[in-house]
């Protein structure tokens, strides 16, 4: 098939960007979206142009590296990651708009590549259970009800791609942060740090310049892993509980 691509090209972080139009031909419907971009890039290189920069790695939907806004939708029209989106969801002659994640907490580095290190700092501020190597008790010492383990897993599935932030009209990181808070706070092992975790992570989330939640639900719709919107409610509850209890912050 033949497609018209309008892609955000931005040479560097402090340079202005612009939507640039490219025509590509010979696209197979079996190609993944990223393979379509590979195809474009091969042509650009041979034509003496610079290829379009985009993040990608595992290409099987689990590392969370890839992500672009396709026709205004984070990761495009299917509920999956960009690398698992296939060209059969487009038709010959389509015009496709491709833009980077947009949020002030995710500055553009180049073209479609953005800096998501704010997520790492949120996790670093409390998204862990302190269990230094060697200190662990026998694994069966604390049974965990299956329902609790399943709930933790459902939230631990987050791949940190940032689609929630990209889709949210406020550039909010509530879904990402809540997924980690819920994963760890519901497990008995996460109990001792339950209050400090949620307080510290929300502090960091705010300090990184993400917007607040207005409960539009766009994040959960865009999430390729189906992290549910009520994880945000659970995090809010954890936050209120910790605040009312006068929970300590690790980072105070």
């Amino acid at each position: 098939m033949r497609l018209t691509l309008r892609i955000w090209r931005q040479h560097g972080p402090d340079e202005p960007g612009v939507m640039t139009t490219y025509e590509v031909d010979g696209i197979s419907e079996d190609m993944s979206f990223l393979e379509m971009l590979d195809h474009l890039n091969e042509e650009l290189i041979l034509g003496g142009d610079e290829p379009v920069a985009f993040d990608h790695d595992c290409r099987e939907g689990i590392c969370g590296a890839c992500g672009m806004v396709i026709n205004g939708q984070a990761h495009g029209p299917e509920r999956t990651t960009t690398c698992q989106l296939h060209m059969r969801h487009f038709t010959d002659g389509d015009t496709i708009d491709i833009e980077p994640w947009r949020a002030s907490a995710f500055p553009v580095i180049k073209d479609l590549v953005v800096d998501r290190s704010a997520f790492d700092r949120i996790v670093g501020s409390g998204g862990f259970i302190s269990a230094p190597t060697g200190s662990a008790p026998e694994a069966h010492a604390t049974p965990v009800p299956k329902a609790v383990a399943d709930l933790a897993f459902e939230n631990a599935e987050c791949i940190g791609c940032g689609a929630c932030v990209a889709a949210c009209p406020n550039g909010s990181a509530m879904l990402f942060t809540s997924a980690k808070v819920v994963h760890l706070n519901v497990l008995p092992q996460g109990g001792p740090e339950r209050e400090s975790r949620v307080l510290d992570m929300i502090d960091t989330m705010d300090a990184e310049g993400f917007g607040g939640c207005t409960n539009t639900g766009e994040c959960a719709t865009a999430c390729p892993k189906g992290i549910p919107l009520h994880s945000i409610a659970t995090m809010n509850r954890e936050y209120l509980r910790a605040t009312i209890k006068g929970g300590q912050r690790r980072n105070s």
């Binding site: 862990f128 259970i129 269990a131 190597t133 060697g134 200190s135 662990a136 008790p137 026998e138 694994a139 069966h140 604390t142 049974p143 965990v144 009800p145 299956k146 383990a149 399943d150 933790a152 897993f153 631990a156 994963h183 760890l184 497990l187 092992q189 996460g190």
Partner: peptide, 21 residues
């Protein structure tokens, strides 16, 4: 030891209804 370590870190391994791994 690895399993002990990972469980302590909060790795949500599959569990049975009795709560064991």
């Amino acid at each position: 030891e690895i399993i002990d370590q990972c469980v302590a870190q909060g790795v949500p391994f599959a569990r049975e209804y009795g709560g064991l791994l």
